[in-house]
């Protein structure tokens, strides 16, 4: 499980970040925050994560800024 990013014109994979949702629950709708971060709610009781995305000289990095079990969107 995880999140993948692609270039929208070519579909080329840019980066990915692994995470685990609840068994049989898969509604981790990514939401964009401030244009450069992605908020993901992982499922019942698992909380949420915020991923910071950066691009430098064509290289993409995705780092988890925080992981909070108490913040849930679903």
């Amino acid at each position: 499980m995880g999140i993948d990013a692609h270039h929208p014109e070519s579909g080329k994979p840019l980066w990915n970040h692994a995470f685990t949702t609840s068994p049989k629950i898969c509604v981790a709708q990514p939401g964009i925050v401030d244009g450069s971060s992605i908020l993901l709610s992982l499922g019942y009781g698992l909380g949420s994560i915020l991923i910071d995305v950066e691009e430098k000289d064509g290289t993409w990095t995705a780092k988890e800024r925080w992981n909070c079990r108490r913040l849930t969107l679903i």
Binding site: M1, G2, I3, D4, A5, H6, H7, P8, E9, L14, T21, C26, A28, Q29, P30, G31, I32, D34, G35, S36, I38, L40, V53, E55
Partner: peptide, 17 residues
């Protein structure tokens, strides 16, 4: 799949099972 166009080049992100 959300699409971000702000700050830098286009980015499409999708989550998968």
């Amino acid at each position: 799949p959300p699409v971000a166009l702000r700050n830098f080049r286009p980015l499409l992100a999708q989550s998968r099972s």
